[in-house]
Design a protein around this nucleic acid. Sequence first.
DNA 1: ATTAATTAAGCAAACGGTTGCATAATGTCA
DNA 2: TGACATTATGCAACCGTTTGCTTAATTAAT
Lengths: 332, 332
Amino acid sequence: MVSKRRRPTINQVAKEVGVSKATVSRAFSRADMLSKETVERVLKVAREIGYVPNQAARALSTGQHGNIGLIVPDIANPFIPPLISTVQSQSEEADYCVFLGNSDELPEREDRLAKRFSGQVEGLILVSSRLSDDRIRHYAAELPVILVNRDLEGIPRILIDSAVGVTEAMAHLASLGHKHIVYVSGPPKSWSNTQRKKTVKSQGKRLNLQTTNIAANPPSYEAGFKVVEKIVASGATAAIAFDDIIAQGLLAGLASMGIETPGQFSVIGCDDVLGAVTYPQLTSISSAAGEAGRIAARTCIELLENKAMSDIRYVLDTHLVIRDTTGVFPQK
Amino acid sequence: MVSKRRRPTINQVAKEVGVSKATVSRAFSRADMLSKETVERVLKVAREIGYVPNQAARALSTGQHGNIGLIVPDIANPFIPPLISTVQSQSEEADYCVFLGNSDELPEREDRLAKRFSGQVEGLILVSSRLSDDRIRHYAAELPVILVNRDLEGIPRILIDSAVGVTEAMAHLASLGHKHIVYVSGPPKSWSNTQRKKTVKSQGKRLNLQTTNIAANPPSYEAGFKVVEKIVASGATAAIAFDDIIAQGLLAGLASMGIETPGQFSVIGCDDVLGAVTYPQLTSISSAAGEAGRIAARTCIELLENKAMSDIRYVLDTHLVIRDTTGVFPQK
DNA sequence: ATTAATTAAGCAAACGGTTGCATAATGTCA
DNA sequence: TGACATTATGCAACCGTTTGCTTAATTAAT
């Protein structure tokens, strides 16, 4: 049986110290209003009897919960954990706790989570939100909402701009002699995907290369594996995948067809989350997800602190990290 | 500027419907006490004016917050996300929100998180806790605590038992002809690591194989890479790594020394988190982290619901998944 | 020495729900 | 038809803080 041992309350501390509960309260939140000695006495007793301010009561009274909500589409996607991690540590520094939600890419689920969270958090960070513009604005009217990889005017947003990285990747492939490049696309509604696809196309035009778009749906290792046949049939000699997981699928698929990487075919991933912990090391477009998380959390906290809300739009650059899965074509 | 638009309260709904706030309250939490029509009228008005019960007030009144806390040592470790994911979805089903904390393997940080969480959650799930026995018991006295991969008597715990998987791995290597096997160990304080190390040793003895223990510290890809030299120098022909990331480091290190896998050296990982999304596919010991999360969450919720607390100790088996990084030695 | 300003602490009313007890209305049974 | 359950609702205390307003005590200014 769990003993229903109640936590000590502010009243007990007050009685023990011989002051009013207002004084105890202030010893914790407005110490500057009290004399040094009083604060010390209160804190000492509080420590002794194990008093910890009741968050719920505080939240009820102040309307502040000291939490921030973070909703991501898929924790299992290696792009996400570094982001969670930095949001977490930034929040902790500012003494906020993080509510985590996983939407599994389902808009309804994301909506449910947002609804549930909105009552107990100061701010909401939505990563690659699949919510409609309307719903996002609905929540943004209630509390600060920060978007990562979703571009919605008027809502603070952090965008990881693949354009630079993809441009570098295309140039890299062109310099290696490739003439036909496939973009293996991911979630159709994703802002990142759209942007990468567009950039591949435009850069192909500029560099005078043929480009083809082939979808890996749903975006996964298996989908990457399966789609290889189609890619090879297209006559392309290199591929840029929506993310590193699909890229790994491509590598496996190519190997299963007896096609060597990078000898006969080059592969570039996106996000650079697997590249450095995998062998052979994947050439990939680095996404600075951690950085995005850091900025999202900081923006959120700043917004909470000075309540000023301006139209914020951070754009983070990406860069190509060349490793071992891209090579010269045709092979000499 | 954020408009300080207050959410509608129970009183507004009550006034609008023409009932007491007690009735509104019951319409949401104890609908069975009211007549069907009353409940309907209340809910209708509530929906219209956008009333949502205030969690903080509810928590203050009932002492129930509707949250459960989850503290993990390192989100970036691929073993963790599937676990988070299942905890999350199980909790959601029972209408709990998840507080996530990342301790970065630091006991002090874990303690801070636990302290902060304990006031706003019903239950706490600690994964691979680095906390002292005392601290854990301290929290367990305040609220239900569930341990994953930590074996502490009297506290409900879910253990992923590597013994079976490691035993299978040793047998597999023995059958391939290997005579000297290295265990590449991870965090020294980790229960899992200790267990794996012990099993390698005992199985080595049983199968009449030489075994050596070499530490990769801190456990990482780089550490795995670096340690290869020592491993090769030991004369071993196969290695079992503490986790898949170290295993990948080993693969890279071996390749850099011109040693072929699995031709000249075999590698087995643990946790099986990278094996299936990586090429070449890693032979690994599957850990069922998701399953552990599911059981942890369910146990926690059950504990909360019927308050009965018995000494629970779940043990989950692991199994070897043979893929492409283990082979016959000596090569024919 | 008197008045004004400053500082430290207390009083009591919120904050928005829940819930034990009381009450009124309806139904049941002998 | 009176006594007794049963059902649906209201009343009001309580949960543990915060905070605007007061008061008392001390210091500064004239």
